[in-house]
Write a protein that binds this DNA or RNA. Structure first.
Lengths: 162, 162
DNA sequence: CTCTAATAGTTGTAGCGACAACTAAAGGGA
DNA sequence: TCCCTTTAGTTGTCGCTACAACTATTAGAG
């Protein structure tokens, strides 16, 4: 049971990755909060609904696409419903299930927030990388996700974009 | 002011990156919480202190190495002090400043937690990648950090590992 | 030698997320 | 049919983080 410590190069990379993982979410939150009064997670919930048929998804499906637990999603959707951006209604086919649907106000909100968010994504990440690096990062995140979420229980989102 | 939307490849990569950024911290937290009753951030604070001369750092220096705001660090160190893992004392040279020092108990805690944490880091990320991918990820995170933290105000940590 | 601005750190508060406990409905034997 | 398990979702609570407001000390301009 000897510990396999990290090599110099592995450690340097690991530390940089942690720093990115630490800083990126707060940057995204800050921009969206300031410009649209949404957290980044709020935005993603709305964005996923906006791309779904009828702008409607079951809570479980929405949770997968946003890589969230059902509990967290439930809290968030409750708040979004209170703000009139989303509405919930029981699923007719399965009485256990709940559907979440984007309201007209919610749709307008996403439309308004999207350009600024994309600009931020470019500024902070995408435009900092060469096309080759984008391709490399694609492979790298793919490999890591296979470890983080082997069965794809959470985080099915990326499969919709292949 | 037309929006430069993301290409198919850019979007797929961006979504994967977001998923990693969403899932990785909670995985690290879960392991450390379960095995050592520490958050990942707690662990990093203790780890940074353990590598410093005298196992002591000024709050500002510690905040940079952990990519945290001073406010956040202050709260965390307060809690760690309450648990006897860290102690604080005023800096003699600069009466505004506070030094944080790892206690013997804190040192023991890091020693105990480190192997499990490294094993997790390998399992989830490092061992999922080839040496080439590690090198690529090093470059990629470097480029992104230059955007996230241009002046290196926060996140000076990685420079200690070059 | 002031007086102002910058630096160092702390604290209060509010909001979000993790975890555990819970209800309710559907599925699946025997 | 009955019972047990699984699935779907909600809710309460606690702890952590962001943000803003605050104090105290130091550095720098004039």
């Amino acid at each position: 049971m000897d510990t396999q410590w990290l090599s110099r190069e592995e450690l340097a990379t690991w530390v940089r990755l942690l720093t990115v993982v630490e800083l990126l979410p707060s940057r995204l939150d800050t921009q969206l909060r300031r410009d649209s009064a949404l957290t980044h997670f709020d935005y993603y919930v709305l964005a996923m609904l906006s791309e779904a048929p009828e702008r409607t998804l079951r809570m479980t499906a929405l949770a997968e696409r946003t890589a969230a637990t059902l509990a967290r999603l439930s809290h968030v959707v409750q708040r979004l419903e209170g703000r009139g951006l989303v509405e919930r209604f029981p699923c007719p086919q399965d009485k256990r299930a709940t559907n979440a649907r984007l309201t007209a106000t919610g749709w307008a909100k996403v439309q308004e927030a999207a350009p600024g968010h994309v600009r931020t994504a470019r500024q902070l990440v995408i435009d900092a990388l060469t096309p080759e690096q984008i391709a490399q990062l694609h492979e790298i995140t793919e490999a890591v996700l296979a470890r983080l979420d082997p069965e794809g229980k959470r985080a099915s989102l990326h499969r919709h974009y292949d």
